[in-house]
Amino acid sequence: MEVRTIKVFTTVDNINLHTQVVDMSMTYGQQFGPTYLDGADVTKIKPHNSHEGKTFYVLPNDDTLRVEAFEYYHTTDPSFLGRYMSALNHTKKWKYPQVNGLTSIKWADNNCYLATALLTLQQIELKFNPPALQDAYYRARAGEAANFCALILAYCNKTVGELGDVRETMSYLFQHANLDSCKRVLNVVCKTCGQQQTTLKGVEAVMYMGTLSYEQFKKGVQIPCTCGKQATKYLVQQESPFVMMSAPPAQYELKHGTFTCASEYTGNYQCGHYKHITSKETLYCIDGALLTKSSEYKGPITDVFYKENSYTTTIK
Rank of each mutant, 00 (worst) to 15 (best):
E2H: 08
E2F: 09
R4K: 13
I6V: 12
T11S: 11
D13L: 08
N14L: 07
N16M: 15
V22G: 09
T27N: 14
Q31K: 11
F32S: 05
T35G: 09
L37C: 12
D38M: 11
G39S: 13
G39H: 11
A40V: 13
D41Q: 10
P47Q: 05
N49E: 09
N49V: 11
S50W: 12
H51E: 11
F56K: 02
Y57F: 12
L59G: 07
D62C: 14
D63N: 04
L65Q: 15
A69F: 15
Y73N: 04
H74T: 14
T76F: 10
T91F: 02
K92S: 11
Q98L: 12
V99A: 08
T103K: 08
S104K: 01
A108K: 08
N111I: 04
Y113F: 10
L118D: 08
L118N: 02
L119C: 06
T120M: 11
E125C: 06
F128I: 00
N129Q: 09
Q134I: 04
Q134V: 10
Y137C: 07
Y138T: 14
R139N: 12
R141E: 05
C149A: 06
A154E: 04
T169A: 05
S171W: 15
Q175S: 10
S181T: 13
S181E: 14
C182Q: 00
R184C: 00
L186M: 13
C190I: 03
C190A: 06
C190G: 02
K191N: 13
V203L: 10
A205L: 01
V206H: 04
M209T: 15
G210T: 01
E215V: 05
F217L: 15
K219M: 09
Q222V: 11
K229T: 12
V236W: 05
E239R: 10
S240L: 01
S246P: 01
K255E: 13
G257R: 05
F259M: 08
T266R: 03
G267V: 15
Y274F: 14
K275I: 07
S279K: 02
K280Y: 10
T282V: 10
C285V: 14
C285I: 14
S295A: 13
K298W: 13
V304G: 02
V304F: 00
F305Q: 00
K307V: 14
I315Q: 15
K316D: 15
K316G: 15
K316P: 15
